[in-house]
Design a protein around this nucleic acid. Structure first.
Lengths: 205, 205
DNA sequence: CGCCCATTTGAAAATAATCAATGGAAGTGG
DNA sequence: CCACTTCCATTGATTATTTTCAAATGGGCG
């Protein structure tokens, strides 16, 4: 990651805070802002006609929200825990990007990374078993945090709706990983990976 | 869709043809070209360590291939049937985009559309049953073709690997839709939607 | 201390995968 | 032109995984 070309944006951004479960925007809202997570976590989700909920993505510190929106946000965004963000006017960002190719280039790079992440997630959802999905999810979080100890700010329902599993299956898979000695659970929201190689062995690609 | 800003690109492109199952590029190849499908169909896919294959996407006439690539193509691309494409030098495209904001803007729009399609597909893979996936897939193809008669250039294996199902399940779901009078099958690769409303009723969002 | 809610665990049911066999169309060669 | 072969698709029976339904556990907070 380059010593970020987007740092210039911060001067036009406003810091804001959301409480747990507070909503950032709804699906269909006019998409006139981008957001960057500073602290906490955001989930984007969609409620289906049958009442079930799909979690499209989690956004952790450093992540940009809203780059996929055309006119309107396609999904709702909510705080998983108390979260602080920077809000950028999309109009101003677009103006800066038009004036500075380095910024435009960086935004395209971030979109490409988003496409890559989406591809990986489609592979997970289409071809992995429950335990493989959980293993892959934990490894991704660990890589992001760059440590073996992981914080899971979201609850089991969020994880299930993200991985295409029920909360019971999520719970059972985590229990199995504990039994197999691959992870140690400290409490509901904290665990550490003790056998990364075994966990990696569960993932397919 | 705008009367396409990308038309300017065609002057720097070269037309090429691929036979059925011929390879356009491999995962890991240096990504120095973009491609546009003119006729036929391309699939991008990934072979997993356990030998299973994930089909990431299908590209039909009008679609651009390679926008998600950073340095290297992340997936392989192969012709589903005999296919003609235009190949663009990525270096030249990038130069044109740098010189003409309309082109750059259009490329960003296409990437956004890709992110939207990826989101829809993740919803399908994460939260839909077999018959719902097939119904959704057929409706998407029908919308693209802008008619009720659909051509399925790909075989059942391709469809299964794309929708996260086995070929048997794909076949059974199609049979069920036939029995329920929602589709009529002309042959292996051609069918028409006769009850679009019912098919739509099967999809969740 | 006791309640509440998220999580975990258990048993039954449902969905899709796997294993196995049949059917049928396209292409080949006599 | 027709029989043969091959490949792909369909259908059937069984198995496996995950969901659903149900109950119990346990930690945090008033």
């Amino acid at each position: 990651m380059p010593a970020d070309a987007l740092a210039a944006l911060d001067r036009i951004g406003a810091v804001m805070t959301l409480r747990r479960d507070e909503r950032l925007f709804l699906a269909g809202d006019l998409a006139d802002c981008y957001f960057k997570v500073l602290k906490g976590a955001i989930r984007t989700c969609l409620v289906l006609t049958d009442g079930r909920r799909h979690v499209a993505d989690f956004f952790l510190p450093g992540d940009l929200i809203g780059l996929d929106a055309a006119e309107a946000y396609p999904v709702a965004a909510e705080a998983v825990v108390e979260t602080t963000l920077i809000r950028y006017s999309r109009r101003k960002v677009d103006a800066l990007a038009a004036a500075d190719p380095a910024i435009a280039q960086r935004l395209v790079e971030i979109m490409r990374a988003g496409l890559a992440a989406a591809r990986d997630h489609m592979l997970l959802l289409g071809h992995m078993t429950a335990i493989e999905r959980i293993a892959s999810f934990l490894l991704t979080l660990s890589d992001r945090a760059a440590q073996e100890r992981i914080s899971l700010p979201m609850n089991r329902t969020d994880i299930g709706d993200y991985l295409g599993l029920t909360i019971e299956t999520v719970s059972r898979a985590l229990s199995q990983l504990k039994i197999d000695g691959m992870i140690v659970q400290h409490n509901r929201h904290d665990l550490t990976i003790v056998d990364r190689a075994a966990l990696l062995g569960l993932t397919r690609p």
